[in-house]
Design a binder for these strands. Structure first.
Length: 546
RNA sequence: GUUCCGGUAGCUCAGCUGGAUAGAGCAAUGCCCUUCUAAGGCAUCGGUCGGGGGUUCGAAUCCCUCCCGGAACGCCA
């Protein structure tokens, strides 16, 4: 079914067209006060200035030109010029049979129109375990990918593996230092070394496997580099899998060098006169594309800056034919966004090819004090800790509920405690309650059966509230996908759960006439499907009992 | 100094391209389990939407300015 908002938008824009011969962006909203209708539009007021007419007059004209719709019960004009719509029950009556027919496909939309989208997120350097600070981005990217996929986009989830460059050199040197130490040699760590316990464990593993074969060996550093990256990538993948986060592509930075793509991208930029040399370095003319100043891509010592392979990487993505690239980055990268977007405009010819969603850094507090995340100290709180202590569902739901712009302070003492007042249980409990209810009814010989719905028994305000929320689901998916705002769906989950719990308390389902039982069972099953589906999109499980 | 984010109830946060009387959860208080799961429901309490100007029929929302908090401003990655 189409979101009712879209139906009304079409009606209104047609009326505007015939009455005034104008196009306008039409906004539909839900009034807080039910006496103002189910939905309303302020289009008469927004057009008042351009039409130089009293908004109430415009509203009357629009309403007079509205086509008949089976879904609109009545329309009135109120206040300064609101057009208020009362939606016919027939609209809400479609929803249960449709959900029961489509099952989990309900709410899948055409908004994305098969546009291919590459979402890059997480992309934690393989130099340590994944920690709390990365968890937000991983959750955000995964849920967004699921939602956009459902909304009809063709989504590729991608992780950029920084397996080249200084950090990896430091990792290799750190492993080597530990390895030497284990053999009783000088194990001085490099200046920016990594001190996590995994490093020592890996050195130990290498020692027991290969003995002292890599002491003073020329090939040793490459060996340590490869093993370090492999080790951490495996740990990261496992942690993410347990967090409900998966990827279609792990893209190796090193492969850009191996396949000569960095060099060819540099040549590409040079050939188009987008670079110049100064002070022995090569600059990219990003300032001509909206950046504050030009950026160095090749340093005077001949090595590349981080930007250079990153441009090659994004060129690779573009060459793979994606319509849109989305990067989800921590806000500490915001200074980097302009230059990357400038570079992408250079190579793609489009200004809005790359969309960057910045998320605010999560600050973690324990016993009232901020816990600083540091891979160097090796004392960071890991995602693994969080999953083990608080549970995947609680963490995923916690992140899903907040807008990416929110600065979050995560109180570990609170998060780790499996408190029963955790909001995730509220939604999960709603789902579990429905399951037991349906099972009970089935054991008494009733079953889901959408074939003869009369709705005669579904007239309680609690039942009607559920029908309304269910019918809103496709619109919520559409909005969350278009705006890239996962938390809109989390808000919906809460609202639907809340309506379910009210319904559950007020309306007995099983003790009633047969017709009533079946209709209510159908409703319950429809709610269950939508609840389970939307929790799944957030990376949260929908338990059958609690 | 510049840029980006945030400031909404005691706490954590919603608030839909500006809309009608600013909402949830937690905390507090009081009711509701002989009835499908009380991890629930219902009700009460709680607000100068950081301060001040402005824009207009209308501002938590847009503009200006100031205050507070966070992040970033490399030939680091």
């Amino acid at each position: 079914m189409q979101p009712i908002e879209n139906i009304l938008k079409n009606l209104l824009s047609q009326a505007l067209q015939t009455a005034y011969d104008i196009d306008a962006d039409i906004h539909i909203e839900t009034p807080k006060d039910a006496s103002h209708g189910d939905l309303s539009s302020n289009v008469a007021m927004t057009q008042a200035r351009t039409l130089k007419t009293n908004p109430r007059t415009i509203a009357q004209t629009i309403v007079a030109h509205l086509d008949e719709s089976p879904y609109v019960e009545s329309v009135n004009i109120a206040g300064p010029g609101f057009i208020n719509f009362f939606i016919a029950d027939t609209f809400y009556h479609q929803v249960v049979p449709e959900i029961l027919e489509k099952q989990d496909a309900f709410g899948s939309g055409e908004t994305g129109q098969g546009q291919s989208v590459n979402i890059e997120y997480c992309s934690v350097n393989p130099t340590g375990s994944i920690h709390v600070g990365h968890a937000r981005g991983a959750a955000a990217g995964d849920s967004l990918a699921r939602i956009m996929d459902k909304a009809g986009y063709n989504v590729t989830r991608e992780y950029y593996v920084n397996d080249a460059g200084n950090q990896i050199d430091n990792l290799a040197k750190s492993i080597e230092a530990r390895y030497k130490e284990l053999h009783g040699h000088d194990g001085t760590m490099p200046k920016d070394g990594y001190f996590g316990k995994e490093i020592t464990e890996l050195a130990q593993t290498i020692k027991s496997k290969f003995g002292d074969a890599y002491l003073g060996n020329d090939a040793a550093i490459d060996f340590f580099r490869r093993h370090g990256v492999d080790l951490f990538l495996e740990i990261i993948k496992q942690d993410l899998a347990d967090y409900g986060v998966t990827f279609d592509v792990f893209f190796s930075e090193q492969s850009l060098y191996d396949d000569n793509e960095v060099q060819s991208t540099l040549t590409y930029l040079k050939d188009r006169n987008l670079t110049y040399e100064a002070d022995g370095a090569i600059f990219l003319k990003t300032s001509e594309y909206g950046d504050e100043k030009d950026r160095v891509i090749v340093k005077s010592d001949g090595t590349y800056t981080y930007l250079m392979p990153d441009i090659a990487y994004h060129k690779n993505k573009i060459d793979r034919g994606f319509d849109t690239l989305i990067n989800i980055l921590g806000s500490d990268h915001h200074g980097y966004v302009n230059r990357l977007q400038a570079a992408i405009e250079m190579i793609s010819g489009h200004t809005n090819k790359l969309e960057v969603n910045l998320l605010q850094i999560v600050r973690v507090f324990q016993e009232g004090e901020e816990v600083k995340m540091s891979k160097r100290s090796g004392r960071a709180i890991t995602l693994r800790d969080l999953i083990d202590d608080a549970g995947r569902d609680a963490i995923r739901y916690f992140f899903a509920r907040h807008s990416l712009n929110t600065h979050m302070d995560l109180d570990l003492d609170l998060a780790i405690r499996k408190s029963t007042d955790n909001p995730v249980f509220y939604a999960q409990y709603a789902h579990a309650r429905i399951i037991t209810l349906i099972n009970k009814a089935k054991s008494q010989g009733y079953d889901i059966d959408p074939s003869h719905m009369t709705y005669e028994t579904l007239k309680s305000s609690d039942a009607r509230a559920l029908l309304k929320w269910l019918s809103r689901y496709p619109g919520v998916i559409e909005e969350a996908a278009q705006k890239r705002e996962v938390h809109k769906l989390a808000n919906f989950v809460h609202s639907l759960s809340s309506s379910l719990h009210s319904f559950y308390s007020n309306v007995p389902v099983i003790k009633a006439s047969d017709q009533r039982i079946v209709e209510h069972l159908n409703l319950m099953e429809a709610v269950r499907i939508v609840l389970s589906q939307s929790l799944n999109l957030l990376g949260v499980s929908a338990p059958t009992s609690m």
